[in-house]
């Protein structure tokens, strides 16, 4: 297990390095500098600016400096929000996104697994068909379609829930964003759980368990649940990535002051350092979470332990 853990951790390092270098180099080869958007600056001021941002050094040295700063948690200054560093912007807005994402993930896992199990146990019956049709809808309606539709129905037409913002931070403000974020994930997890549960229930060791007289509930929970959830566990990585991407849209539509909204605004304003900072931050997050999922998987499957 220790060897497994170490090799996974070492395996994640090149991924991170490639991610950081790739985004760094992309920025360097991009047409136009960060100061092009404004009026033509006098050459000496531009030179000063370039020196201030260390843009006059060789690219490799800049990359090295960036990596060194990153290791200390410094993402550099924002080009757009001149008074803030990117680190401050991330630190200020990420907790909001995190709260949203964690709630959505929890909702997605509990509802998705439950619906998937019900569908698997009632295979080819009404409950199965309803769950699967709902899941297909969840997958097919993108969150940027679902979000405005939900707002239209529940906020504009019915007036039950607020249309946007965090307001006083009450639950009613979170309901629509969290549901929007969770819906596609619920759908994916339900489909995944159903498929793997059906597979597991057909396997010979389940027949053995039934031949031992175990009750259907014991068979399901003690024998079938763990193997059936393994695909769900390995989906957790992509699911987290999906929730993070989704929050970009959801925060935009619901006006939630999270990291996703900063990212979109940074992208539209060509705030290179901010965009890159967010890419590196989220990339690292995804790599680290994937690593944890890998380890969890290794712990769940005894055949991977050593």
């Amino acid at each position: 297990m220790l060897r497994f853990t170490l090799s996974r951790i070492l395996g994640a390092i090149p991924t991170l390095l490639i991610l950081i270098s790739l985004s760094f180099l992309l920025i360097r080869v991009a047409p136009g500098g960060p100061f092009d958007s404004e009026k033509q600056l006098p050459p000496e001021i531009e030179a000063n600016l370039r020196a201030a941002y260390n843009l006059d050094e060789p690219v490799v040295q800049q990359l090295g400096r960036y990596l060194w700063n990153l290791a200390q948690g410094d993402f550099g200054p924002s080009f757009q929000y001149r008074d803030f560093t990117v680190t401050e912007l991330i630190a200020g807005s990420f907790p909001v996104s995190l709260r949203l994402g964690a709630m959505a993930m929890l909702l997605a896992l509990s509802l998705g697994v439950l619906a998937g199990c019900v569908a698997a146990l009632r295979q080819n019956r009404l409950a199965d068909y309803s769950v699967m049709t709902a899941a297909m809808t969840g997958i097919s309606v993108p969150n940027f379609v679902m979000a405005p539709l939900l707002v239209l129905v529940f906020a504009v037409w019915l007036g039950w829930l607020p249309a946007g913002g965090l307001g006083d931070g009450s639950v009613s403000h979170l309901i629509l964003p969290v549901i929007t974020l969770a819906l596609p994930q619920i759908a994916y997890i339900a489909r995944l759980t159903r498929a793997s549960m059906i597979d597991v229930l057909r396997s010979p060791f389940i027949r053995t368990a039934r031949a031992q007289g175990l009750t259907p509930l014991t068979v399901l929970i003690r024998h079938a649940m763990k193997p059936a959830l393994l695909p769900v566990v390995s989906y957790l990585g992509p699911a987290l990535a999906g929730i993070i991407t989704g929050s970009v849209v959801v925060e935009q539509i619901f006006g939630v002051p999270g990291l996703g909204r900063f990212f979109v605004q940074g992208a539209l304003n060509r705030d290179y350092t901010l965009v890159m900072g967010v890419v590196v931050f989220y990339g690292t997050l995804i790599v680290v979470l994937n690593l944890m999922v890998d380890l969890l998987y290794g712990w769940l499957d005894p055949r991977l332990r050593r």
């Binding site: 991924t15 992309l26 920025i27 890419v279």
Partner: peptide
């Protein structure tokens, strides 16, 4: 492929769009 899999592509694509 494993390494590329772990990259947050959606963000890189957005970065590309912003840059180019």
């Amino acid at each position: 492929v494993d390494i590329l899999y772990a990259l947050p592509f959606m963000f890189l694509v957005i970065l590309l769009m912003v840059l180019f």
